[in-house]
Amino acid sequence: MTQKHDASFPHPSLDEEGSLLPHPTRRTVLTAGSVALGGAGACTLAVPFLDSLRRTQASSAASTREQAVMDVSVQDLAPGAHKIVVWQGMPVAIQHRTPDMIHALEDTALLAQLADPQSRIRQQPHEAENAHRSLRPEYGVYITICTHLGCVPDYKDIASLPASGGFFCPCHGSQFDGAGRVLRNMPAPYNLPVPPLHFVDDHTIRLGESLLSPHYSLNSIQQL
């Protein structure tokens, strides 16, 4: 306990208190020190608690092991029909288009209603940046998760569109055409994503692997 004032720690802000006390600087330093130490301790204590919210090693191992590649047979899919498969926990709609539907996708009246008719925003691999927004015109494959807030749009005909088929999101009414392209002035900002895929043979689609754009994955798209 030294009696001399510590000149290197002047605290003019505490003068009103300091004038009453013989050792204002020493007291201020000790108070600040214990508050700082206590605060640092409390923050360190928070580390294990926040850490425990991290996903466990087991579940992260599980997510990497999750089947990334899935083969889907479309042999049973009649023209005009569609089906929903689950790939990596996401619903994927596969539609078998009739020639009328393919033709309808290029209808200028339809294109005029679309927000991104040319598929300029990267929501699909390059090989699907075409009029029918798919690898082969007769098959459309889209992840049916609305780009607005993540609801699952239903596959249904939309009255304002020509007979291309379409998707309608029940949450906020976003409408998409048969190629998953969002209409103008809808809550959803982007087209429905196209998963990486290629055709193993004429009747089998392999989801999760793109031959023409091998680096395309769901991480590459604008928004899921």
């Binding site: 007291r27 000790l30 020190g33």
Partner: peptide
Amino acid sequence: GVLLALWRLL
């Protein structure tokens, strides 16, 4: 240690 010093001072 810091708290003890402060306590004795106070």
